[in-house]
Amino acid sequence: MSTPTSWKKSSFSGGGEGNDCVEIADLDTHIAVRDSKAPAGATLTFPVAAFASFVQGLKETRSTKPE
């Protein structure tokens, strides 16, 4: 598997330096995820379909959550 070269930080990264979140990178067949506070640390990878299902589940949970 290749090494990510272009990371994207979530738009929900918190205040200040914006380092309270995760970053993702597209590796064609997988999505890489890392902690934005420790970019040199471990990286998790997920198949694209599994990551897409995970994100969809988050969106559905967020839309049904009472305010």
Results as ranks from 00 to 15, higher is better:
residue 32 A to T: 06
residue 9 K to N: 11
residue 50 A to M: 11
residue 62 R to A: 09
residue 34 R to S: 03
residue 54 F to N: 04
residue 54 F to P: 02
residue 37 K to C: 01
residue 5 T to L: 06
residue 10 S to Y: 02
residue 7 W to P: 00
residue 59 K to Y: 04
residue 20 D to H: 08
residue 58 L to Y: 08
residue 17 E to Y: 14
residue 1 M to R: 14
residue 2 S to I: 12
residue 56 Q to G: 08
residue 2 S to T: 12
residue 53 S to L: 15
residue 19 N to S: 06
residue 56 Q to S: 12
residue 6 S to C: 09
residue 15 G to H: 08
residue 67 E to T: 15
residue 45 T to K: 09
residue 26 D to Q: 03
residue 40 A to S: 15
residue 14 G to H: 04
residue 36 S to K: 00
residue 61 T to S: 15
residue 35 D to F: 00
residue 13 S to T: 01
residue 60 E to W: 04
residue 4 P to I: 04
residue 30 H to E: 12
residue 36 S to I: 01
residue 34 R to A: 02
residue 27 L to D: 03
residue 6 S to F: 08
residue 48 V to T: 11
residue 39 P to G: 11
residue 53 S to T: 13
residue 20 D to I: 03
residue 32 A to F: 02
residue 54 F to H: 05
residue 33 V to P: 00
residue 30 H to G: 03
residue 10 S to E: 02
residue 33 V to E: 01
residue 39 P to V: 05
residue 65 K to N: 09
residue 15 G to I: 07
residue 49 A to Y: 05
residue 60 E to F: 05
residue 2 S to V: 10
residue 47 P to M: 05
residue 21 C to A: 05
residue 3 T to Q: 14
residue 35 D to R: 02
residue 35 D to Y: 00
residue 60 E to S: 11
residue 5 T to V: 08
residue 31 I to M: 04
residue 12 F to V: 04
residue 24 I to Q: 01
residue 66 P to E: 11
residue 10 S to W: 01
residue 39 P to A: 10
residue 4 P to S: 05
residue 20 D to A: 13
residue 21 C to I: 03
residue 32 A to S: 06
residue 12 F to G: 04
residue 63 S to K: 14
residue 67 E to F: 15
residue 38 A to D: 14
residue 19 N to H: 04
residue 38 A to G: 09
residue 34 R to K: 06
residue 47 P to Y: 04
residue 59 K to F: 06
residue 12 F to T: 05
residue 17 E to T: 11
residue 44 L to M: 15
